[in-house]
Design a protein around this nucleic acid. Structure first.
Length: 581
DNA sequence: GCCGTTTTCGGCCCGACTGTTTTCAGTCG
């Protein structure tokens, strides 16, 4: 049993304890243990012989160590088994629905014996929920919409999770001698925010037709396979325990480029590309670009050759959506897309002062290691009480400390004092203007209640950016729960006003938090918004999430010039932001 | 359940917002 599984089982146990109305602190310790285990680099299953090493992990005590030993040895543990006799595992899925917490799940179970989403939907539609306390018309409406959204999204995986799986699987495949290159294709390569399944293209001497069988066998017996779906001559399909489907194709080097092109898609891009080939007396398949009259191979080994043979510049995968990229490639007018190396600073991150894990100094050192020239420390303000948010006095003390660290860095990096201030219900910020005046970077963000009416939400944000201290609007959209059509109006209004005021809008690079998708980014550019891309890192390693933000920027056809934090120095960056009052 | 002790139990991030209340429980971040 690997660490991820152990963590998941402990987390599930925590959720079941919540439904069981157990001691909240006991629940939290299960959650904390799960988080700690996820962070471990060594597999706990190799440590169970010596519990001392388990106990050395913060958050793991005697009882939790025993749980881990049980999990590794038996696949389950007594507390979990006991809870599962009282409750159903499908209840855990109910907890993911908006508005459904442990109390509500427990209530509908005890009163209606409803334990899964289908039954809940039925009960809601039949009006059974309305008989329960505190569940009226509005609750039911919201719940049914939540169920609908949940069904739509639950079958896709976030890009960072898919990327992690791709890397893990690639490592195992690469252990086979004679395998040289493994490239994820499909929507992962195109940088979509979510992917439906994973396509891995593999090549090397071991993938040549006469010897490929052994490599196929190696892939088909990988230890992390849950269900083997298919095993062909050069293709293996399987699912992981989390239901992610993986298709691995082993291809000879001669046709690798054609296969990569074909499996990267998108479908519409490929259709348009093949039409272009036919007009030129050629035919494009997953094996090669051929001349129709004599089947002569024109190009196959690399994507560049294929595009060039079709009189096109090379098209980066992020642009392959048949949205004008073929025309631009033919006219040699493709934009020079932004790259990770263009980013010189990160303007949104948290430290241990609030809900971050590391110190100001550690964040600064980590940023230096990633080649950045400047960062802003933007911890939470007091309204986010759960994060230990800073009140005015603590915020002022904090920026004093930030300035000290800035001086200590002796020019190796600039560390700017900042704050992520919370936008209250009426649109006012939750710290004094005199405090905000001390900050170089003021990121104003809405945190609570993303499900309020769209007009109210828009109004709230518009008022917040009228405040002259607001320099960056953090996660400007009410993510997840807003209806598409309402959302479009909402974001349009906000981006327009931000552009007028010179308030920069944030593109949160972290896939978990990102809410400006490529469409919104394009819209922001159209409106003339200043755009900042940042990680909202809560720990040093999260600074690496910048790469996902860059992918989204590339999908929106953005270049270095479109993004503020490509400015070479902190001073240059600050001069691009809205002037301080 | 974990931790840190003044070694044996008390403390452990908490405030805003919503719905359906008629004074608050539940959810969320």
């Amino acid at each position: 049993m690997d660490n991820i599984t152990i963590a998941r089982l402990l987390d599930e146990t925590a959720a079941l304890l919540e439904i069981d109305a157990a001691d909240p602190f006991r629940i939290r310790s299960y959650r904390r243990a799960a988080e700690a285990i996820e962070q471990q680099t060594t597999q706990l299953s190799t440590l169970i012989a010596d519990t001392k090493q388990l106990l050395a992990i913060p958050g793991i005590g005697k009882a939790m160590a025993a749980n881990i030993v049980d999990l590794v040895n038996t696949g389950t543990m007594p507390l979990r088994d006991e809870l599962l006799t009282k409750y159903k595992p499908t209840m855990l899925e109910l907890l993911r629905l908006p508005g459904m917490g442990p109390k509500t799940v427990a209530l509908i179970w005890s009163s209606l014996q409803v334990a899964d989403i289908d039954a809940l939907e039925e009960a809601a539609k039949a009006g059974h929920l309305n008989k329960l306390p505190r569940m009226g018309e509005k609750f039911t409406t919201k719940l049914l919409k939540g169920i609908e959204d949940h069904r739509k999204n639950s079958s896709r995986f976030r890009i960072d999770q898919a990327q992690d799986h791709a890397e893990r699987i690639s490592e195992l495949i690469r252990a086979f001698p004679g395998i040289e290159t493994i490239t994820p294709a499909g929507s992962l390569r195109r940088g979509r925010e979510t992917v439906g399944d994973l396509d891995l293209l593999v090549t090397g001497p071991a993938c040549e037709p006469d010897v490929v069988a052994a490599a196929v066998e190696h892939v088909a017996t990988l230890p992390l396979i849950d269900k083997l779906l298919a095993k062909g001559q050069n293709k293996v399909s399987f699912t992981l325990r989390n239901n992610l489907q993986v298709d691995v194709r082993l291809l000879p080097r001669a046709s690798y480029g054609a296969a990569l092109q074909y499996f990267t898609g998108s479908k519409m891009h490929n259709v348009a590309l093949r039409q272009r080939a036919i007009k030129r007396g050629l035919t494009l398949s997953e094996y090669a670009l051929l001349r129709l009259e004599d089947n002569k191979i024109i190009a196959a080994a690399s994507e560049e050759e294929i595009y060039n043979a079709l009189d096109l510049d090379y098209i980066p995968p992020e642009l392959r959506e048949n949205c004008g990229e073929l025309e631009a490639a033919a006219a040699h007018t493709l934009p020079k897309l932004i790259t990770l190396a263009d980013i010189r600073g990160d303007l949104h991150m948290h430290t241990e002062a609030t809900d971050g894990r590391d110190t100001i100094r550690q964040m600064a050192e980590a940023a230096i290691a990633r080649g950045l020239a400047y960062i802003a420390i933007t911890d939470h303000s007091k309204n986010l009480a759960m994060t230990n948010g800073l009140d005015d006095a603590r915020a002022l003390a904090h920026i004093k400390r930030i300035r000290e660290v800035d001086a200590e860095m002796q020019g190796r990096i600039r560390v700017l004092p900042g704050i992520e201030v919370d936008i209250l219900a009426e649109g006012q910020l939750d710290l004094d203007d005199s405090t905000l005046a001390q900050m170089d970077i003021v990121v104003a963000s809405v945190h609570s209640r993303f499900d309020q009416p769209i007009e109210q939400m828009t109004d709230r944000i518009l008022r917040a950016i009228e405040n002259p201290h607001t320099r960056i609007l953090g996660h400007p959209t009410g993510r997840k729960v807003l209806k598409r059509e309402a959302y479009a109006v909402h974001i349009d209004t906000i981006l327009k006003r931000a552009a007028e005021l010179g308030v920069a809008v944030e593109h949160n690079a972290s896939p978990a938090r990102s809410d400006l998708n490529d469409l919104n980014l394009r819209l922001a550019k159209q409106h003339g918004c200043k755009i900042v891309v940042d990680t909202d890192a809560h720990a040093t390693e999260e600074l690496d999430q910048m790469r996902y933000g860059i992918t989204q920027l590339r999908r929106a056809w953005l270049t270095k010039d479109d993004i503020l934090n490509t400015q070479p120095t902190a001073e240059a960056l600050l001069s691009q932001l809205r002037p301080k009052p």
